[in-house]
Design a protein around this nucleic acid. Structure first.
Length: 895
RNA sequence: GCCCAGGUGGCGGAAUUGGUAGACGCGCUAGAUUCAGGUUCUAGUGGGCGAAAGCUCGUGGAAGUUCGAGUCUUCUCCUGGGCACCA
């Protein structure tokens, strides 16, 4: 016997796939295409288990679809710009470019050991000028189309690092590296007009039916459409025609206007700022609001605070009704108009605020039937109901009242119906070196001038220094000094670079023609390959990356680049890879390899023997040390073992627990499969004709084989990989029971073996190829068509009927599946009578004590003794026959 | 606070439409083989009662619909995740 040697085997097949170009994709309009894409990685230098899971999922889909006859595009590349490279430059004095290229080389080598069916000829790195030159062109096209613009916006500024920080780099109001208090600064930045597509981005979510619901929901909320009314409130004692004589509020509940108790403006609302000049106490209050704004956690629990400005607002429907105007910390200047009216009875926040400041709680919507005397306690009433205390609105429901009041106020000229969005335009300027330069030249005379197309790409200079804090690109002695393309006068380049989401917003299109030089991609290629049929990646990109890509595709379409608007037809978001955590007596974290099982079964430190406590399984992270290095697993067990384990234990969208025992199990299965093929219990004659006679076991196994083919195909279609693995193992178990003495068993064994290799190939391609060759089959498994189940053989000859009485299983019957109902049911009934008689007394006694009403129990008892079993319509009482284990389903209630 | 997703053996998880709950794997128990070396094979493995046949309870909890509920409905508890005080 030869032992399965994964090391030489895996390397050999990886080499052969590469040499033969097995996975090189070519456009072929005659063949249906399938584009499967995994989110490309940031080249940190090492792959982790999250990558292994992500890329295995994609590879199984790619290989399966390929076997199904589709023309598969399955590329891989590198999201190569980003902050870690600059940090490495500062910390280790390595140039970002050199560091990134070295990391890419390392990670590519690691990925290759996984045996992924990538078309490596399409590999790309976004830091390559050949890549980013095209996005510079795209940006200029967007600019020409009015989809890009420059304006001032607030940023988090780290005064020590001299740089802008992302929100997640601000910890407790301080820079994450410098620890310096972060300042808010107003900078001129470039924006992309994603809001132009807000309506369409929202509406089209409904058509993305192969996206997870929760991702669609998250995007829906992020876009945040709300329909409402802008209403102008006059300020008492001021001229309503003057600009400071009135202010605008936004509401989605204009129907509750008669329940108004106050008005409130945001702390940075012009009205608040105006009053603060003359009111030091208000100025202090505004400062307090500013402080609570920085810390997320504080904001969560912050209580509703207000400051009475002393000003009064006139109620738009009754000028004699005056509402106090507060400055409130829960009103946001960035949303709506930065001002609200408060209706305590029908809004939780307003209620809390009113209780705190002793404002009236006036009910204007009451539950139907409780119009009189309905009062508010601790909870506001936010459901639909009947309008009360509301003059001309009384008696209407909420929707009708909204319409009526909007019409009235619009007619009065004090309001306007509008739609407000939460979505903001996408700020793409970053004050960073390691990113794509924004192709703009700033001229004192001509303003912002686009770099002429024939001068693209604007290449990032490599001779930069990171000695000074701030943007190395800005510090470069010569790079930014150029002549204005318009007037020829000295001018300066834009030294900001693009947000790295810019690169990942179109890389999927670049993969369609990665070597096109003058354009980002050819029209023919994207028309053929796009959209991505299956996109696979982490849930953490549910909003930004996916939304930006959807926006980008629309913008590219409107600039004439392509014809579609949705880049990803199908989306799968995989769960995290988790592992148990270990700590020593001192409470310090331990790596899994520092822990071993002692003889008494307890876990101890591998060196000291000191006891180790096991913590719950959590997402693998360096800080908790619960990480397993994929390279070590692939080296010790092989890629197929890692791949098989990744697929077998959990459904893809759920978190996966990485366990050593599970890895062992996968490893053992591969060896078992190897033995099944290389030391069969029968003499294999793979191309022999079907024997005329089959033993019962042979017949059953043949049927199981066809059922397995059908089930695995279905499971893979639906991404239920763990179930597919279970079915495959089931077939292996049945094969092991075959022997040489039964009629046709050797033949069935051979058939099943060939099917098994094809079925498992997407998961464990190396061993599949090796066995294929070992058995002397022609060609390679990766080129074999997917096996097809014989429909006649996936239906059992007999069906098992469960016989139930009063919901209790009373027996099962094996019946030929073609027996008609007339035959089936009387026999079931007869069997029931026999069994029923035996225990009826005991059951009747229990029934009388049962929790259900005595009337029902009696009714059933009466019907039972001589009832004929005839299906649900005619037998509401006591007897049923349900079909179990029928692969066809749907047959449980015939007749 | 709001929203979403989950609670099934010792563990990961199966169970198309309501029809024999626990497939498959891990772990564990007993035995066999080989004993060197991440073996392999056989049998068993939800709880309780029982020598066994079998009976009975059982899918977080409580109620309900149904001949029949892991699956449907209502309430409730717990866990995980997301968020935007969005007017």
């Amino acid at each position: 016997m030869s032992r399965y040697n994964f090391k030489t085997t895996e390397a050999r097949w990886q080499r052969l796939w590469e040499e033969r170009g097995s996975f090189v994709a070519r456009e072929d309009p005659a063949q249906p295409k399938y584009y499967v894409l995994e989110m490309f990685p940031y080249p940190s230098g090492r792959i982790h288990m999250g990558h292994v899971r992500n890329y295995t999922l994609g590879d199984v889909v790619a290989r399966f679809k390929r076997a199904r006859g589709l023309n598969v595009l399955h590329p891989m590349g590198w999201d190569a710009f980003g902050l870690p490279a600059e940090n490495a430059a500062r910390d280790n004095r390595r140039h970002p470019a050199e560091w990134t290229r070295a990391n890419i080389a390392d990670m590519r080598a690691q990925l290759r050991t996984m045996g992924l069916s990538y078309d490596w000829s399409r590999e790309l790195a976004t830091c390559d000028p050949g890549y980013y030159k095209h996005e510079q062109k795209m940006f200029l096209d967007f600019l020409a189309k009015g989809l890009a613009y420059r304006r001032e916006s607030w940023v988090n500024w780290d005064p020590v690092e001299d740089t802008v920080l992302a929100n997640e780099q601000v910890v407790d109001g301080r820079g994450w590296r410098s620890g310096a208090p972060v300042e808010r600064r107003l900078l001129k930045q470039w924006f992309l007009k994603i809001t132009h597509y807000a309506e369409d981005l929202l509406a089209t979510l409904a058509e993305l039916d192969r996206w997870p619901d929760r991702v669609r929901l998250m995007q829906e909320r992020w876009i945040g459409r709300s329909e409402g009314l802008r209403v102008w409130f006059a300020i008492a004692g001021r001229d309503p025609a003057a600009p400071d004589g009135r202010f605008e509020i936004f509401t989605t509940r204009p129907d509750t206007l008669y329940g108004a108790a106050f008005a409130a403006v945001a702390p940075n609302h012009p009205l608040a700022l105006e009053r603060a000049k003359a009111d030091p106490a208000l100025a202090r209050f505004l400062e307090t609001c500013q402080k609570t704004g920085t810390s997320e956690a504080a904001l969560e629990t912050a209580e509703k605070l207000g400051y009475d400005t002393g000003l009064k607002a006139e109620h738009p429907l009754d000028p004699s009704w005056q509402l106090p105007i507060y400055v409130a910390n829960f009103v946001l200047m960035e949303y709506g108009s930065g001002a609200i009216f408060g209706c305590p009875a029908h809004d939780a926040r307003d209620l809390e605020f009113a209780r705190k400041y002793g404002l009236a709680v006036r009910v204007v919507v009451a539950p139907r039937g409780e119009e009189a005397g309905f009062t508010i306690g601790d909870e506001p009433f936010t459901d639909d109901g009947v309008m009360v205390n509301s003059d001309f609105l009384n008696g209407l429901d909420v929707a009708a009242a909204k319409r009526a009041i909007a019409e009235r106020l619009e007619a009065m000229g004090v309001a306007q119906r509008t739609t407000v969005w939460r979505l903001r335009d996408w700020g793409v300027s970053r004050q960073r070196y390691w990113g794509c330069p924004i192709p703009i030249i700033r001229c004192a005379g001509c303003g912002d001038v686009p770099v002429p197309e024939d001068q693209l790409p604007v290449v990032l200079p490599e001779d930069v220094s990171f000695d000074k804090p701030g943007n190395a690109l800005d510090h470069h002695p010569t790079w930014k000094h150029v002549a204005c393309p318009h007037c020829g006068q000295p001018a300066e380049r834009e030294t900001d670079t693009f947000d790295t989401f810019f690169e990942s917003s179109w890389y999927f299109a670049r993969f369609c023609s990665p070597n096109a030089r003058d354009i980002g991609f050819t029209r023919d290629a994207v028309d053929y390959w796009m959209p991505v049929d299956q996109y696979i990646g982490g849930i953490e990109h549910a909003v930004l990356h996916l939304l930006y890509s959807r926006f980008f595709t629309r913008a590219l379409r409107d600039c004439g680049y392509l014809a579609i608007k949705e880049p990803f037809a199908g989306l799968m978001t995989q769960g995290m890879v988790c592992h148990e955590t270990y700590r020593d007596a001192a409470g310090d974290w331990l790596f899994p390899e520092q822990v071993k099982k002692a003889e008494n079964g307890r876990l101890v430190h591998v060196d000291t023997g000191a006891p180790v406590t096991i913590g719950r399984s959590e997402k693998m992270s360096k800080s908790r040390k619960n990480v397993v290095d994929p390279a070590a697993i692939i080296d010790g067990y092989g890629a197929d073992t890692a791949r098989l384990f990744m697929m077998s234990d959990s459904p893809p969208e759920r978190d996966l627990d990485w366990t050593e025992a599970g890895v062992d199990g996968a490893w053992r299965y591969l060896n078992r499969l190897w033995r099944l093929a290389t030391e069969p219990a029968v003499t294999l004659a793979l191309d022999a004709p079907r024997p005329t006679a089959l033993s019962a076991r042979a017949d059953q196994t043949l049927r199981l084989m066809h059922k397995t083919i059908a089930a695995v195909s279905d499971n893979l279609d639906k991404f239920r990989f763990n179930s597919a693995v279970a079915r495959i193992r089931e077939l292996s178990n049945a094969m092991a029971d075959l022997s040489a003495d039964g009629a046709g068993e050797a033949w069935v064994y051979g058939q099943a073996l060939v099917a098994l290799i094809k079925l498992i190939n997407p998961m464990t391609p190396h061993i599949a190829e090796e066995l294929w060759a070992e058995l002397g089959r022609p060609g390679m498994v990766c080129d074999q068509p997917w096996p097809v189940a014989d429909p006649a053989l996936i239906i059992d000859e007999t069906v098992t009927i469960a016989v139930q009485v009063n919901g209790k299983l009373r027996g099962t019957l094996e019946l030929p599946r073609d027996v008609d109902n007339k035959t089936r049911h009387p026999r079931a009934a007869a069997r029931r009578r026999q069994q029923g008689r035996r225990s009826r007394g005991a059951r009747a006694a229990r029934r009388d004590q049962g929790a259900r009403g005595p009337a029902r129990a009696q009714g059933r008892g009466r019907a039972e003794p001589d009832h004929q079993c005839g299906g649900i319509a005619s037998s509401p009482g006591s007897c049923s026959a349900g079909e179990g284990r029928s692969p066809r389903g749907g047959a449980a209630w015939e007749g």
